[in-house]
C-alpha cells in the first residue's frame, strides 16, 4: 500500500538523517527516484521550492514528495514518518539527558558519521552538476550534450557567492542565492 510505503520510507530517512536537511537528499533520491515515484529532475525542483518556502527544509520536502505520490493523505504519512524517529529518540534522550551527549560511544559514532555525511552531500552536488552540464539534467546514460548556458550561470553564481563572502564576511543566505539563480536563469535560458 502506497501510504504505508510512504510512511515507512520517510521513517527510515528520518532515522538516518544526521546534521540537518541536506543529508536527507541522497537517501530521498535513492528511495523516491529508485521506486519510480518522482523523476530526479522534479526532485531537484522540489529541493529548490522547499528551500525558498518557510518552514524546515526536511518537512517541506517530505510534504512535497508525499503529496505528489499519494495526495494529501500521502503527505500526512510521509510527514509523520519523518517526524516519528525524532519524537521517540528525543524523548528517550530527554529522560537520560546529560549522560547522552557526553557518552563516548555517542561521540565516537558521530565522529564516524560526519565524514560520511559530508561525502554524501558532496557527491549529490557533484553528480547533479555533471548531469546539468553534460547530460541535459538526465541520467549518465542519456545523450551527451554540453550545456554552455548552465556553465555560464554556474560561473556567475560562484563568483557572486565568493565575492559576497569576501565583502560581508558571511555566506550568502539560501533564499538570496536561489532568488538570483532563478532571475539569471530566466535571463540566460530565455534568450
Amino acid at each position: 500500500m502506497i501510504f504505508f510505503e510512504l510512511f515507512y520510507t520517510f521513517f527510515l530517512i528520518g532515522l538516518f538523517t544526521f546534521g540537518g536537511g541536506y543529508a536527507m537528499i541522497p537517501m530521498i533520491q535513492e528511495q523516491v527516484v529508485g521506486k519510480g515515484w518522482i523523476s530526479s529532475s522534479a526532485l531537484t525542483d522540489f529541493i529548490a521550492i522547499s528551500e525558498v518556502t518557510p518552514g524546515p527544509f526536511a518537512l517541506n520536502i517530505s510534504t512535497f514528495v508525499g503529496n505528489t505520490v499519494g495526495s494529501p493523505f500521502g503527505a500526512v504519512c510521509s510527514t509523520l514518518g519523518v517526524i516519528l524517529p525524532s519524537l521517540i529518540i528525543i524523548i528517550i534522550v530527554a529522560i537520560v539527558m546529560n549522560k547522552f551527549i557526553t557518552n563516548r560511544f555517542v561521540k565516537g559514532a558521530l565522529n564516524g558519521v560526519k565524514p560520511i555525511v559530508l561525502a554524501l552531500i558532496l557527491s549529490t552536488a557533484l553528480i547533479l552538476l555533471i548531469k546539468i552540464l553534460f547530460f541535459n539534467g538526465q541520467s549518465f546514460q542519456s545523450e551527451f550534450s554540453f550545456d554552455k548556458k548552465s556553465l555560464t550561470l554556474l560561473i556567475l553564481l560562484f563568483s557572486y557567492t565568493f565575492i559576497s563572502k569576501k565583502i560581508n564576511k558571511k555566506s550568502v543566505s539560501p533564499i538570496c542565492l536561489l532568488g538570483i539563480s532563478a532571475l539569471l536563469g530566466i535571463i540566460i535560458f530565455s534568450v
Binding site: 525542483d45 552531500i121 550561470l153 554556474l154 532563478a182 536563469g185
Partner: peptide
C-alpha cells in the same frame, strides 16, 4: 527557465 537556473543554484547551495 527559472527552474533551470534554480537547479544550478541548488548545486551551489549543497
Amino acid at each position: 527557465a527559472a527552474f533551470k537556473g534554480l537547479k544550478v543554484g541548488v548545486v551551489l547551495l549543497l
